[in-house]
């Protein structure tokens, strides 16, 4: 009965803090820059000095799927950073301010509190990503030509578990730490490691890592392969990343149950 007011409060808070607007807008801004700079690149080069007069620069115009896939791969690091900033204080900040102790003396289980936080930030992340990719893809299509939307949406769906992993690990850290900055720092460190290190640890670990999943998503969006081929490539990555999500979700929950507020 009490999970409903918890979730409602979280959404109310998203609105009051404008997170519900900022996150999608920042996601759009981060991704849409790519098609714009790609389009302007020849002109920028032509206007830049230092090239002898009469030099002809021949840059092949990239295709729309290529532009969009670059947008996603460029988005990864900054998008991760934004999600960490948005979610790092959700539990740690409430512990630091003392609101958590006001809440936990009421008949609210920590499980419901934790679940409400996770559900809210998952929804925010998924919604923002869908809006961001939708607008960026539409704009890319205007500038560079037709896209296959089935590939775009499927690629996005394949990519989303990576963003959810960022949210899960940040909330998990937020359960453990008693201040938002500590939680954010720990989550950032962890995400840098998990997104960059596995590719050096052999083919299998690379395939099941978030990096592997990003590659599968890009392969889907690039439209160089059929949907079925790209989907099969994504299976190990999906399995790996969803498992990580699962593990850190329960770890965060456990840490919150164990922690003394």
């Amino acid at each position: 009965m009490t999970s409903y007011p918890m979730i409602r409060k979280e959404f109310h808070e998203l609105m009051k803090t404008y997170k519900i607007l900022i996150v999608p807008i920042v996601f759009i801004a981060l991704m849409i820059t790519q098609p714009i700079t790609m389009k302007m690149l020849p002109e920028i080069l032509a206007n830049s000095t230092g090239l002898p007069k009469g030099t002809v620069i021949n840059i092949p115009t990239p295709s729309a799927p290529e532009v969009l896939s670059t947008a996603i791969s460029k988005f990864s690091s900054l998008g991760t950073f934004v999600l960490i900033l948005v979610a790092m204080g959700t539990i740690a900040g409430e512990k630091a301010s003392g609101v958590a102790s006001m809440v936990f003396v009421k008949p609210v289980s920590r499980a419901k509190y934790y679940l409400a936080k996770a559900v809210t930030y998952y929804a925010l992340t998924i919604g923002s990503m869908l809006i961001g990719i939708g607008i960026t893809a539409y704009y890319t299509q205007l500038l560079f030509g037709q896209l296959d939307w089935a590939h775009v949406w499927l690629g996005t769906l394949i990519y989303i578990p990576n963003l959810l992993l960022v949210v899960t690990t940040t909330i998990c850290a937020s359960s453990f730490f008693n201040n938002a900055v500590g939680a954010g720092g720990a989550s950032l460190l962890f995400n840098i490691v998990i997104f960059t290190v596995p590719q050096f640890l052999g083919k299998f670990l690379d395939m099941v890592s978030p990096g592997g999943l990003t590659n599968a998503a890009i392969m889907m969006i690039q439209e160089n392969s059929t949907i079925a081929e790209a989907a099969i490539t994504a299976v190990p990555g999906l399995a790996g990343v969803l498992t990580l999500n699962f593990v850190f979700f329960f770890m965060g929950w456990y840490l919150l149950e164990r922690s003394e507020i």
Partner: peptide, 18 residues
């Protein structure tokens, strides 16, 4: 170029206003 940049400018204005 202005047309090209319109969405970016729009986003910036939106963020600024909020």
């Amino acid at each position: 170029d202005m047309q090209l940049l319109a969405p970016l400018i729009g986003i910036q204005l939106l963020l600024m206003v909020i």
